[in-house]
Design a protein around this nucleic acid. Structure first.
Lengths: 336, 336
DNA sequence: ATTCATAGTTGAAACGTTTCAACTTCTGTG
DNA sequence: CACAGAAGTTGAAACGTTTCAACTATGAAT
């Protein structure tokens, strides 16, 4: 078992050339005469030489590594984003370091330090707090940062976001076009940015239509968390109180799945008795019965766009910082 | 914007000590007098010095990076594994590089090269082919490799796997204990190792019980892919042919979800008319109605154990290579 | 035959650490 | 007061690359 790593020096000796020539073959092949080049390539082949990124980096090349810091890499939303970024980066020979913070300040901080030590060329991040000071410190040091699913007023940082306000209006527009007038919105705590924005979209769309048709009304119900059981509880309360509505919009699909479960227990028929729109278009939205109409966010694209922005920032001297905003789309299914 | 990185030299100058002392503070603090140490730490603090992993690595320290190569990092099965590995590695100051191959040889090969260039200390991998020659080449070079969800006869490689055979018997045992005698097994192509193994477990359990009670019988149905629609089709065919069985085992949860959909359309009541067991215990197994009894694999643990094995291999001089095999567990729910 | 440009090649220096042998100070002992 | 040993500190060398000024060889033009 040969644990000795092959170096440029060895390749050079075997090919009877100097270090510099081997390096030239690797980096600027046109500078080297064809016969020499072939000899060197053969030597590389034979020795199994592999470039050492660390040494290159020390000499000024980039680390060819990028970090992605998210709340939870096993959460489907981030999973897709990571995948999108990974693919975009691989094409350029970059490698992606995955970091899950679980919203813990301490872990986020540890990861950012590790990434700094590794001298990653850039970081894609969904910050776990409102406070961007740690991130500012990084950009101060010249590290490139792209915010994912988070905006900032600073004009010197790129960001990619999804338009949650628009997503809210999409849901309302869809229901109204299906003839619904009295809509219930089951939302999570408004301290969550997404919930706040989606509600804003719902409200503005309702407002707009009420100007035309005064029958259009909105009921609201706030739940403490965006979970299946919260959806079950909410729909149970709301259906037994005989509120007056013909459709429900949920702030995410889990809530909507809870509503479906309650309805099937209570014998409420979807979509006949009640229409239902979810949000996120998780994989299983299409698999439940009835399948769930939902607002889809282009997650893979979010990730790949974030990576593209970062790459552009790394390459282009006169890179323009920008905020890329994606629009969600409504996927109509059986539940409406 | 100060893009100049701080080096040990600068810290040393500011603290009025030599390079060596700064290094000692970093690596062997007890060797340095307290007053000096404090002075150096203060200088580190003030300058915002961050160690350069690349330079350390060049001097012999490890790269403090590990790669994980899977078929698809956005597939929930791998997602959990990655997460498990990530956490275990972070605790030891390691960083995890995520690589999705989509079962492409070319991509796998590219990633392995990138990981080699980065001199990762080890690789966790679910090989995309039966052929382990590329991996052998890596271990030849002294790279540590741990196989994930894949066995090998070689005794010099660690692996973590789940006992799919046992999972198959678990499903059968559960149904038999619930009083079922005539069971249908909907399986995928046996070229997939998991399908092959699960079937072996099902067969042996059936065999065992038939020796006691000759009424115990197994029907089999093979579908081309492990998808929801394949499950729908299979159950449609099988239910309309009025085969004689009271329970179904599906080779994975997607198939089982398909069965549930068909049953709800045909008015077949689960579990009254028909019991159903899935495999994988995907998140939504607990969310559908009726909720799905399923065989769960300890994915996070798989990932963290793989990472632990790797770390042990990196640290312990006399590391024992081993194959760790996890047992799945059956999660009973409404569908049985 | 001489000069000049071009193409190809060389090897020392530099990148930011860690290591280690050598050095300096300090402390306590006889 | 001399000395040994311990405790603390130093700085050159090394890790594996890339860069670049300097060098050599090869023709082409005069």
């Amino acid at each position: 078992m040969n644990k000795q790593r092959v170096t440029v020096k060895e390749v050079a000796k075997r090919a009877n050339v100097s270090l510099g020539t081997v390096s030239n073959v690797l980096n600027e092949p046109s500078r080297v005469a064809k016969t020499t080049r072939d000899r060197v390539l053969k030597a590389i082949e034979e020795t199994g030489f592999v470039r050492n990124t660390a040494a290159r980096q020390l000499r000024g090349a980039g680390s060819k590594a990028v970090g992605i810091v998210v709340l939870d890499s096993s959460n489907p939303f981030f999973t897709e984003i990571i995948r999108g970024a990974e693919d975009a980066l691989r094409e350029e020979g970059y490698v992606l370091i995955a970091c899950s913070t679980d919203e813990s300040q301490a872990v986020e901080s540890q990861y950012l330090s590790l990434l700094e030590e590794h001298r990653v060329e850039g970081i894609l991040i969904t910050p776990s707090t409102k406070d961007l000071s740690r991130i500012n410190a990084l950009t101060q040091k010249g590290l490139r940062v792209v915010l994912v699913d988070r905006k900032t007023k600073r004009k010197d940082i790129c960001s990619v976001t999804v338009d949650d306000v628009y997503g809210g209006t999409l849901a309302v527009e869809h229901l109204i076009s299906k003839g619904h007038r009295r809509i219930l919105f089951i939302n999570g705590p408004q301290t969550i940015r997404q919930c706040y924005d989606r509600r804003a979209g719902v409200l503005s769309a309702i407002e707009k239509h009420r100007n035309i048709d005064p029958d259009v009304t909105l009921l609201e119900f706030e739940v403490p968390s965006l979970t299946l059981s919260a959806g079950e509880n909410a729909s149970l309360q709301v259906l037994s109180c005989s509120y007056d509505f013909t459709a429900i919009i949920c702030a995410n699909d889990l809530l909507a799945l809870g509503v479906i479960r309650t309805c099937s227990k209570l014998g409420v028929k979807i979509p006949k008795d009640l229409a239902l729109v979810g949000y996120d278009d998780i994989t299983f939205a299409s698999m439940v019965s009835p399948s769930l109409t939902s607002v889809r966010q282009p997650q893979q694209e979010l990730g790949s766009q974030a990576a593209q922005l970062l790459l552009d920032e790394l390459r282009e001297k006169n890179h323009k910082h920008q905020e890329v905003r994606f629009s969600p789309t409504l996927i109509p299914r059986e539940s409406t």
